[in-house]
Design a protein around this nucleic acid. Structure first.
Lengths: 188, 188
DNA sequence: CCTACCGATCGGTAGG
DNA sequence: CCTACCGATCGGTAGG
C-alpha cells in the first residue's frame, strides 16, 4: 500500500463515522483502518472534529447541489418532484457513508458548523416544499399542507439509508422508482 | 433531593443516550445529571452497557406490547392499521427518550442483546405487514407489496422522533391523525 | 509517517 | 453514596 492522501483519510472517516458513529470512532481506529497510527493522522488533519465537519459537509453539498440543479430547470412541478426523489435516492445509495454521517451524526458537530448544516438542510427542505406548493397551485397535486407533506416525503427518502444494502433484493434504481410512485400517489 | 432509585438512573440514562448518544454519554455525565458521582452509579447498575440494554428494551417493549394488543383484537384490518399508527405515534411522543434510544442507539448494543432487539423489531414489522396484507386480501386496500409498504409507513412514523417537539405547532394527537390520513390515502 | 510522549478522561472497583 | 483509586484509552503534540 502506498502513502495515504488527505482524501483517503476523510473517506475512511466517513466509513467509520457511518458505521460506528462519531463518538464510537477513535483516531486510533481510523488509523488502523488506513494501516497507520492514530497520531500519524495529524499530518493530514487538525482534529477529529474537522473530519466530522468535512464528511457532513460533503454529504450536505451532494444533496444541495442536486436540489439546486433540479430547481433551476424549467420542467413542470410534477417532473421536478420525480427528479428530486430520484436524485435523493441516488445520492444515498451511491454515497452511503457521507449520507449516513450527514443524517445521523450532524448533531455532534461543533455549534458553528452545526448551524451552517442546519441552514443547508432547511434550504434543501424548502426546495422540496416550493416545488410541491407549485404543483398544488398548478392543480397537478391535490390540496394539502406542503410543509407536512415535505417532512413525510423526506422521512421516507432518508430512511432508505437505514435499510438499503447494495446487492439486496432491490437495485437502487428500483427503489428510486418505487419511491417516486409512492410519493406521486400520495400527492395526487 | 432525596436518594435515587435504580429506576431514576435508567430514566436519566435514557434522557442522555437520546440526546448525546450512548458513546457520547459518560458515566460521570450521568452521575452529574442525577447529582452524584459517576462511581456511585455502580451501586445501582453493573455496567454502562446494561443501562443501554435496559433503555432499549423498554422502548422495544412499549412498541411490541401495543402491536400485540392491536393484533389480538377483532377489528377489521383498516381499523387495525389506524390503531397501529395512532399507538406508534403516541408511544414516540410520550416516551421520547426510550423511543429515540431504541431507534438510534440499538446498533451499539452488545451482540446478544442486539440480536434480541432486532428479532423484536422484525416481529413488530411483521405485525404491520400482516395487517396490511389482510386489508389487501379483504379488498379494503389496493394491490401492493405489503413488505415495501410497511417499510415506508414505519419510515414516516419513526421519523416523528426527529422533528416532534412538545408544545410545537401540532399536538401529538394531531400528528397521529395526520399520519393515519396520510397512510390511509396511500393504502387505498 | 513513526517514536515517544502528554494530561485528561474513560468504565469500573474496593472499602467504608 | 463517597473516597480514593486502577489500568486503559482518549485526542493531540514535539521532534524527527
Amino acid at each position: 500500500m502506498t502513502t495515504r492522501s488527505r482524501d483517503d483519510v476523510v473517506r475512511a472517516a466517513g466509513r467509520l463515522f457511518a458505521s460506528r458513529g462519531f463518538h464510537g470512532t477513535s483516531m486510533r481506529d481510523l488509523g488502523e483502518e488506513l494501516g497507520l497510527l492514530g497520531s500519524s493522522l495529524y499530518s493530514h488533519v487538525d482534529s477529529k472534529e474537522q473530519l466530522l465537519v468535512e464528511v457532513v459537509q460533503q454529504g450536505a453539498d451532494l444533496f444541495q447541489a442536486h436540489a439546486d440543479r433540479v430547481a433551476a430547470g424549467d420542467a413542470p412541478p410534477e417532473a421536478k418532484v420525480g427528479d428530486l426523489i430520484r436524485g435523493h435516492i441516488e445520492i444515498i445509495t451511491t454515497n452511503q457513508d457521507q449520507s449516513a454521517t450527514f443524517l445521523n451524526e450532524a448533531r455532534f458537530l461543533p455549534d458553528h458548523a452545526r448551524d451552517a448544516i442546519v441552514a443547508m438542510r432547511d434550504r434543501y427542505e424548502a426546495t422540496f416544499r416550493d416545488v410541491i406548493a407549485q404543483g398544488i397551485e398548478a392543480g397537478a397535486f391535490r390540496q394539502q399542507n406542503p410543509a407536512l407533506t415535505t417532512i413525510m416525503v423526506l422521512s421516507v427518502l432518508n430512511a432508505v439509508i437505514r435499510w438499503y444494502r447494495p446487492g439486496g433484493s432491490q437495485t437502487a434504481d428500483e427503489i428510486g422508482e418505487a419511491m417516486v410512485a409512492f410519493v406521486m400517489e400520495g400527492l395526487k
